[in-house]
Design a protein around this nucleic acid. Structure first.
Length: 430
DNA sequence: GGGATACAG
DNA sequence: TATTCTGTATCCC
């Protein structure tokens, strides 16, 4: 096909080290200093900018092992501020969608778009998208363009690696010898959809590079692995085998789980934890307009704890689908009968709601409908919290207004500068 | 259908 | 002292 022929192309756009970019956007005083963002509970590094990478910091490193080094080197460190990142992400996605024929938000910082264009047009468009996002939102992105999602991701990665491309890579416009070199030197495990296990197994079969994978037998891959990996192989060959997915309005399950800043050892404290987590789950159900048929709760020690890993869980089939905070709390409290308290130091707990259905799908006249549910307590609580703040209302053990001691650590949190009036950035004009 | 596994970001 | 959280798809029984 001639380069000037219009074709359906997939654009993959992602925000360069998204969380650190958001932190810099709202705090220019960071300047050129390196930036790290930590996971929930300030546990490990989950985002680093180029300067921090140059200093040798690595994704996933436990914070306590590098804390000293970061301080010595004058690195800016932040707890993760998902409210900020979510808002910036939303602005990016709105803009991207306006360019797209089909659109899929893939994660908080990535999206796929389809656009029909010739290769030269695609290059111009990709650059325009990048510049538009820099100007109108203020975040840096890279754009990869190719015939399939997998190749578009690979093109994006290439755009990041090769500075001369200045953040934009149209795969089919690359010189063939460059593509060849890239495919033969890149390990198969670098490809989207090939995880560490898959890469190991492939290596055992002599499939080491992306080129090997691209040329592997479809039948063999299908048989020894899965349809998923077979689709990946097709996509490497330029065949669209993984379609853009429509936005999922309703989820299949929702989980609310957190690690504790301090271990929980008493039954009373765990009761309080479960009560709060169950109410969080109820809130999320109300927000998405769904009800749960099944709720499970679990608590566990740290995987690295001396004395071995301990976990307790319980599944409760609800008498009728519900989002009711009281019913969910009571169900989750059944976990307390299964867990042992005293010697065991629980490090995390969680609540999972599943068997989800849209609220109102079961008729209100259903004789099995729960009386709580017909009164929509979850929706009521949700709307009150929306109006009066997240701490305005709580049920039972979860109703306390103060921060409990076990609540996750976020000691280096930035301001939520785009979503809360009280936390607006301040500009000083001198 | 349920549980285990793999994967992603 | 200590290593995130959330969600989906597939395989296999």
């Amino acid at each position: 096909m001639c380069a000037d022929t219009p074709r359906t192309l997939i654009f993959h756009v992602d925000i360069n080290s998204c969380y650190t970019s958001c932190e810099k956007l709202l705090d220019p005083s960071i300047g050129n200093r390196p930036v790290l963002v930590l996971s929930n509970n300030d546990g490990c590094i989950i985002s680093l900018d180029a300067a921090a990478k140059d200093l040798g910091f690595i994704m996933g490193q436990p914070w306590f092992t590098v804390q000293e080094k970061a301080k010595e080197l004058g690195v800016v460190v932040r707890s993760s501020n998902y409210e900020l990142y979510g808002d910036i992400s939303h602005r990016v996605m709105l803009l991207l969608e306006s360019y797209a024929q089909e659109f899929e938000q893939y994660s908080i910082d990535e999206a796929f778009l389809t656009i029909t264009a010739s290769l030269p047009q695609a290059r111009v468009l990709a650059r325009r998208i990048k510049e538009d996002l820099a100007r109108r939102v203020g975040v840096p992105v890279c754009v990869g363009v190719a015939a399939s999602k997998t190749l578009a991701k690979l093109a994006n990665r290439t755009a990041k690696k090769i500075p001369a491309l200045r953040g934009v890579c149209v795969w089919d416009a690359l010189p063939p010898q460059r593509v060849d070199a890239l495919l033969s030197t890149l390990p198969a495990g670098e490809i989207w959809g090939v995880g560490s296990r898959g890469a190991q197994k492939l290596a055992g079969m002599g499939i080491l590079s992306v080129k090997d994978l691209k040329e592997a037998s479809l039948g063999l891959i299908r048989k020894r692995f899965s349809v998923v990996l077979m689709r990946t192989v097709l996509e490497l060959r330029g065949v669209r085998a993984i379609e853009l997915e429509p936005e999922r309005v309703f989820k299949d399950q929702m989980m609310y789980s957190r690690s504790f800043s301090d271990p929980v050892t008493s039954e009373d404290t765990m009761r309080q934890v479960l009560s709060i987590y169950a109410q969080r789950a109820s809130g999320r159900l109300a927000k998405s307009g769904q009800v749960a048929g099944l709720v499970s709760a679990f608590c566990s020690t740290s995987r690295y704890a001396a004395g071995g890993f301990v976990r307790a869980d319980v599944q409760v089939k609800l008498p009728a689908p519900t989002a009711d905070p009281i019913i969910l709390t009571q169900a989750c409290a059944q976990l307390l009968e299964r867990a042992t308290f005293g010697a065991v130091r629980y490090a995390k707990a969680g609540v999972v709601v599943s068997d989800l259905t849209p609220a109102g799908a079961t008729a209100l006249l259903d004789p099995f409908a729960l009386s709580h549910e017909t009164r929509d307590i979850a929706g009521l609580v949700h709307s009150i919290k929306e109006k009066c703040g997240p701490r305005s209302l709580g049920v039972g053990y979860g109703g306390l207004a103060q921060s409990p001691a076990w609540e996750m650590k976020r000691e280096m949190l930035s301001r939520r500068g785009t979503t809360h009036w009280a936390e607006l950035p301040v500009a000083v004009i001198k």
